[in-house]
């Protein structure tokens, strides 16, 4: 089985971001970068399928400047077979532009399965996987929390609001991966050494003109930490109001 996994290099989210001087992005100084969380699950799931089968190939693909090679190497150190960098100076915010560049690369080769994380943790648009599928005319299953491929046929569990569904589909196909599928392995030093010798191809990214462009980035108004809403049961209505209107977590 040949599997392609598209991965993105993103900063660690557990920091206080600052806005860069040009106001169109975050200030990158001091940020630590790694593979986006969901992409890590996808790589792990792909490796497990390859290992289970005892044969096959996992090709990792990333769009971006040379720094993404570090992320690709990480996937290689986890066990991916080879890597492709689609080189561009900056990753566009427009998911469709990204999807077009990826599709033009992926369409040229024959993959049984093309995998994505459900969304990138930085832009959080969650659109690239299904768009690539449409551009390539392939069936797509989004937000898989379980995935199994047996004899050219896939089955998956999808997480929905308040439930889950199980689906079956034929390969080739595109899937996007949700949490819960597999925890990405920690690369061993042995793997890190081996990754240095694995093939990593760099090609120019075939990007169309983006039509969704960042105008500005802002920090949200800071929420006061440790706000005591009140004492005892009397505070409940106010808490519920805050959850609904301020935190917006009751939808």
């Amino acid at each position: 089985m040949r599997i392609a996994v598209c991965i993105k290099r993103v900063p660690d989210m557990d920091v206080k971001f600052r806005i860069a001087g040009h106001a169109k992005g975050v200030d990158e100084t001091g940020l630590k970068y790694d593979m986006a969380d969901f992409d890590g699950y996808a790589v792990e799931a792909a490796l497990q399928m390859m290992e289970k089968e005892g044969a096959g190939e996992v090709v990792v693909v990333s769009l971006g400047p040379d720094a993404v090679q570090e992320t690709l190497r990480k996937a290689l150190s986890m066990g991916a077979t080879s890597a492709i960098q689609l080189k561009c100076d900056e990753v566009p915010f427009d998911g469709f532009a990204v999807a077009s560049a990826l599709a033009s690369e992926l369409g040229g080769a024959t993959y049984d399965l093309i995998m994505f994380g459900r969304m990138s943790t930085d832009n959080a648009n969650g659109v690239v996987g299904p768009m690539v599928a449409e551009l390539l005319g392939l069936p797509v299953v989004t937000a898989c929390s379980k995935l199994e491929i047996v004899a050219g046929r896939g089955t998956a569990r999808r997480e929905l609001e308040g439930g889950a569904e199980f689906v079956a589909f034929d390969l080739p196909a595109v899937v996007t991966i949700d949490e819960g599928i597999a925890r990405p392995r920690y690369p061993s030093l042995k793997g890190i050494m081996a990754a240095k010798k694995k093939p990593l191809a760099t090609k120019p990214a075939n990007l169309p003109e983006p039509r969704l462009v960042i105008a500005r980035m802002d920090l949200p108004p800071e929420r006061k930490a440790g706000r005591i809403v009140g004492e005892g049961a009397a505070a409940v209505p106010e808490l519920v109001r805050l959850l609904q209107q301020e935190a917006k977590v009751l939808a």
Partner: peptide, 30 residues
């Protein structure tokens, strides 16, 4: 750890946090 990447699963977050946050506890360096 180095050759076989085998260890109790709960220490992976500690390793990752040391890498990212410079501390084994998942707290931001800031």
């Amino acid at each position: 750890v180095l050759t076989e990447s085998r260890f109790p699963e709960e220490i992976q977050p500690a390793f990752e946090s040391m890498e990212r946050n410079g501390t084994p506890w998942a707290f931001p360096a800031s």
